[in-house]
Design a protein around this nucleic acid. Sequence first.
DNA 1: TAAGTTGTTCGGGG
DNA 2: CCCCCGAACAACTT
Length: 244
Amino acid sequence: MPEGPSIIILKEDLKPFKGRKVTSAKGYAKGIHPGMFEGKTITGFKTWGKQLLILFKGFAVRVHMGLFGSYKINSHGKRNASLHLQFDDDEVNFYISNIKVIEEPLNKVYDWSADIMSPKWDANKAIEKLKAKPKQMICDALLDQKLFAGSGNIIKNESLFRARIHPESLSGKIPDADLKELLKEVVKFSHDFLKWRKKGLLNKHLLAYEQRSCPRNHIPFHKTDTGKTKRHSYYCDKCQVLYD
DNA sequence: TAAGTTGTTCGGGG
DNA sequence: CCCCCGAACAACTT
């Protein structure tokens, strides 16, 4: 479930729970005592990248679903949840999720301008961060949450393809104009991802991720684990330029 | 059936 | 002390 746009959908799905009181809570997530949520009222929700933040008075609960996480609202699976929140007759369940209580002010913890889905996203700051690590491969940078909070392997592949940049290009060697174009594509694709995903049409719109061949040149994509992150990159030699 | 996966943290070794 | 890399984690689909 977990790239940034999916977490926005989760936040929207949870809207009806704003103002509601947790009547009971349980879950096997490490480092939390679900009992502390009982009797507390949800004051709202936020997201940062791939993290959902459930807001209570005085603290927030961070939910991160990792690679295999999922959630169910007003239904539950067979297995125990990492975190289960009961609200009278309603319930919310997070599975295989990393749960953490945050007591510090969120503005201290999160750089909202790094979140690709946030209205506060700041492309200029991202450029600065990219320039600070000129030898980093762009495929790694696109998975670095400090640079592109919310970006995952789908957004990485799709935005590189759309911007015609080879995943193994080094940040410092990519011309400024192309870098700007890439950042535009990251944000544009991520918002399209959200729109398409809501309609269940995301897969139809993927041009590179898990695709066999380049839709521009009709030649097979390379499917290679790239960079330090060693995650699958799908790319076309012919239209994606390697800057190294 | 075994492999593959929209992710991140931890800890050991160099 | 820092960097790098592999292991660990968790469950579902193909």
